[in-house]
Design a protein around this nucleic acid. Structure first.
Length: 124
RNA sequence: AAAGCAGGCCACUCUAUCGCUUUAUGCUGAACUUGUUUUAGCGCCUUCCGAUUGAGAUGGGUCCCGAAUCAAGUUCGGGGUGAAGAGGAAAGUCCGGACACCACAGUGCGGCAUAGCGGGUAACACCCGUCUCCCGGUGUUACAUCGGGACGGACCAGUGCAACAGAAAGAAUGUACAGGUUAUGCUGUAGUGAAACCAGGUAAACUCUAUGCGGUGAAACGUCAUGUAAAUCGGUGUUUGAGGGCUGCACGUCCGAGCCGAAGGGUAGGCGGUAAGAGCUUUUGGGUAACUGAAAGCCUAGAUAAAUGAUAGGGAGACCCUGAAAUUGUUUCAGGGUAUACAGAAUCCGGCUUAUGGCCUGCUUAUUUA
RNA sequence: GGUCCUGUGGCGCAACUGGAUAGCGCAUCUGACUACGAAUCAGAAGGUUACAAGUUCGAAUCUUGUCAGGAUCA
């Protein structure tokens, strides 16, 4: 089972992110919201994913970093849920919408829910 | 033991599993030429002898896969293995520099900053020493000593300001009483007020003096790549000089055929700059000190929607609760709970300021126990 | 990463070459008017001038430092 999250699988293009916010669809499972878009990627990987935490909810850079790391960790350990069965190419962006500091079990539960919701929508 | 002041130090640690970023996987030769390469030296890793350091000995390793290429030991990508990976404030962006470009940086006005004296420094608004003044403690007649603080030049250059009160806050000399005088002028006291002890006070009022400052900032700058529209409309200009050279204005000087606006089209990526530096540690010379000369050793983050992490378990420390012992406070032991302060590099340094957990040292204060 | 601006009752604003009691409108509360409400009239409450320190006889105003909010730059 692939549990890596190398540089190539990170969403980095500013252009793609703008496009994602403009045209992307979303699945929500509080406190995580996933924005996704079926599109062409510059590098030959199936999914590029990024994470974001609004500065408005968390002023401290340390707390924002902590939440982003938790989100990345949860995605890394659970990405096999969507990686195998999808054939198209996707760009992902995970948003943290809560206003309280989360714990890892909360994040992992929400991440699994969000990924399951995504698989269901794509299959339909 | 507590409080206050001053100074210094540290920034939880270990194990297991999974993961992120950077970097290394070598250098110099000889032979052999299309094959499968062979071999020497140096370096690095590992093994052995040895109580340890050092010296020494011996064998092994210095990789694997794919692509480019005629082919490889070259280049690129992937894997494996090894190494390194946030701070004392990385923060605020308040000062000072390095560095880059603008004409190697011009003139005048304007503007800004600093402000006892001396020193340190690349430089500073920083640091050190010292004088003066202020505050506190101790002794005490003045004064001495200890600790702390100070945006600490100039109102006989000019202009302005001073509410209320007061006769008067200026080119003013009032009122009452006393003294004095032929009389006035004059002298003293009183009341108002922060100031009326006069050619006074006030410059964190304008200003003056001295000194310093060219501007813009890594989104600087260089380079490679991708892509469209060298198109359309309006205005203006080509020696009668538009516009620009990133300064608020003027001058001077240089470049000079385009420039401005409308609507619209495209890109928004890579590399360098950029990690060896006013660097760190130790020893030693100079200096009251800040600081600095010399020698030896060391290499110490480089991300870019932004790495340095996640989970589990133990240990140390802190706080809270319960119980036991001595018991005035309190201390010690055992068990349980909470689960780590402030905070995340973004071109790099020197400071300042602010946030914050703990430990140590010195001084002062009043109290308790022995 | 850089640069600039603003903080005054619940809200929107005054007072700014320092001068004593910080003012105005809306909103709030109480009373009057009305059968009741609105409007109107009368009255009241509400401020550490964002916070801290300094200069001064005296600070919302001047100086310095914090905190918060906002704007802007390829």
């Amino acid at each position: 089972m692939d549990t890596t999250y190398p540089k190539k699988e990170k969403l980095k293009s500013r252009k793609l992110i703008d496009q994602l916010f403009a045209q992307g669809k979303s699945v929500s499972n509080y406190p995580i919201k996933l924005i996704y878009l079926n599109t062409e990627l510059p590098i030959d990987v199936k999914i590029q994913a990024g994470v974001a935490v609004p500065k408005k909810n968390f002023k401290s850079a340390v707390k924002r970093n902590r939440i982003k790391r938790l989100l990345r960790e949860a995605y890394r350990l659970n990405k096999h849920l969507v990686f195998n069965n999808s054939e198209a190419y996707f760009a992902f962006l995970f948003l943290y919408l809560g206003k309280e500091m989360p714990t890892y079990p909360e994040i992992e539960k929400a991440m699994k829910g969000v990924l399951a919701g995504f698989s269901k929508k794509v299959d339909d």
